[in-house]
Amino acid sequence: VKANETASATLAGATSAVMGKAVAVLAGLNPDSYADMAAVAASQTAMAAVINSEAARTALVSSSDARKALKASSLAVEMSLVSSDGQYWNSAGTKTMRGLILYTKAGNTDNAFTITKVDSTTLASNNNARNAATSGSTGYKDWLEAFPNSSWVLSSITFYAYYRTTKIKYIPC
């Protein structure tokens, strides 16, 4: 599917039911076990299989229905990244993790949270391309929509942050 442009485009536009079954197949799971994308996104077993399949990961971030189901997943948890104010402002912090980043939050309106690396991939050097917070806001930034190709974390993220309220919301896999 990934190598075939037509098949890839068809899958990206598939309904939630079709996408859920397709992702299950791509992840090596029984598609009859998953009614739709919501079922895949709510299953720890399915998400553990998906993160181990590049084709399944690519399919998920390529589909707006799949991204919507992932953002509504009951498996999503919030995690603080900084244990004390100023901890990683002058030097990078690293968080060992494995999962899908859905949202990011600086927790302060000065926008002091930037993810610079996902696993071994350095994100663009332009601050607007890698900033993990919405300028002037303490709310969550939709990371999955802004950076779908940098949302799957297989081992760690590297970041600069300042406040204890710096958080991510993600699905651990």
Rank of each mutant, 00 (worst) to 15 (best):
V1R: 01
K2H: 15
A3H: 04
N4A: 06
S8V: 05
S8M: 11
S8G: 15
S8P: 04
S8K: 02
A9D: 12
A9V: 10
A9N: 14
T10M: 12
L11I: 09
A12R: 06
G13I: 01
A14E: 04
T15M: 02
T15F: 12
S16E: 14
A17R: 08
M19P: 00
K21T: 05
A22E: 01
V23E: 04
V25G: 04
A27R: 09
N30D: 10
P31N: 10
S33E: 13
S33N: 08
S33F: 02
S33Y: 05
Y34S: 03
A35L: 09
D36Q: 03
A38W: 06
A39F: 05
A39H: 00
A39L: 00
A42Y: 12
S43Q: 03
Q44Y: 12
T45D: 11
N52A: 11
S53T: 00
A55G: 05
L60E: 11
V61E: 05
V61Y: 14
S62R: 05
S62E: 10
D65C: 01
A66C: 08
A66K: 00
R67V: 06
K71G: 03
K71R: 12
A72Y: 08
S73T: 11
S74M: 10
A76Q: 07
A76G: 10
V77H: 11
E78W: 01
S80V: 07
L81R: 09
V82E: 14
V82D: 08
V82A: 06
V82I: 10
S83N: 15
S83W: 12
D85L: 03
D85G: 14
Q87L: 04
N90R: 03
S91F: 14
S91G: 06
G93T: 01
G93L: 05
T96K: 04
M97L: 12
G99Y: 07
I101A: 11
I101G: 05
L102H: 02
G107S: 09
N108H: 15
N108T: 06
T109S: 15
D110F: 09
D110A: 15
D110L: 14
A112S: 14
F113L: 03
T114L: 06
T116F: 12
T116V: 13
T116D: 15
K117Y: 03
K117M: 08
V118H: 02
S120G: 07
A124G: 13
N126D: 15
N127L: 15
A129I: 00
A129D: 11
R130V: 08
N131Q: 11
A133M: 04
T134S: 09
S135Y: 12
G136F: 13
S137Q: 05
S137E: 11
G139Q: 01
K141L: 15
K141M: 15
W143F: 13
W143K: 07
W143V: 08
L144G: 07
L144D: 01
L144R: 00
E145Y: 13
F147S: 09
W152Y: 03
S156F: 05
S156D: 09
I157Q: 06
T158I: 03
T158E: 12
F159C: 06
F159N: 02
Y160E: 10
A161K: 00
Y162S: 10
T165R: 04
T166M: 09
T166F: 06
K167T: 12
I168D: 05
Y170G: 10
Y170S: 02
C173I: 09
C173E: 09
